[in-house]
């Protein structure tokens, strides 16, 4: 079994997530893209665990999931608050903090 394809898949997914963050404007979709990036990195971690015969990578992936859960809770609450006040979920609308 060869693990390199997994790593490359992880890199591709990560890049797609990045580009998604940069191009999408709906805050929720942006958030999903962030989740995609986290998942991509999780895949790399699990793959390396397999590669090295060592469960630490899986533990790390587990922690990433926990932190992602916390992050999603707070992030979505923030998005809700913004939506409530501005009636919009576009990340471009929240651009008052500028020159």
């Amino acid at each position: 079994m060869n693990t390199e394809p997994y790593i490359i898949l992880s890199a591709i997914l990560f890049t797609i997530g990045c580009v998604g963050v940069l191009t999408r404007r709906n805050a929720i979709v942006v958030f999903m893209c962030v989740e995609l990036m986290l998942n991509a990195s999780n895949l790399a971690l699990v793959t390396f665990a397999k590669q090295h015969g060592n469960l630490d990578g899986q533990i790390a992936a587990f922690f990433v999931m926990v932190v992602a859960a916390a992050e999603v809770v707070v992030g979505l609450a923030i998005i809700m608050t913004i939506f409530r006040t501005r009636r919009s979920a576009s990340v471009d609308d929240a651009s008052l903090l500028k020159y």
Binding site: V21, L22, V91, D92, S95, Y99
Partner: peptide, 17 residues
């Protein structure tokens, strides 16, 4: 240079990327 600070979070994300 303050024009760089355009307030768009996606623009900043692009810089990070």
């Amino acid at each position: 240079f303050r024009r760089v600070q355009n307030g768009f979070v996606r623009s900043y994300a692009l810089s990070v990327f």
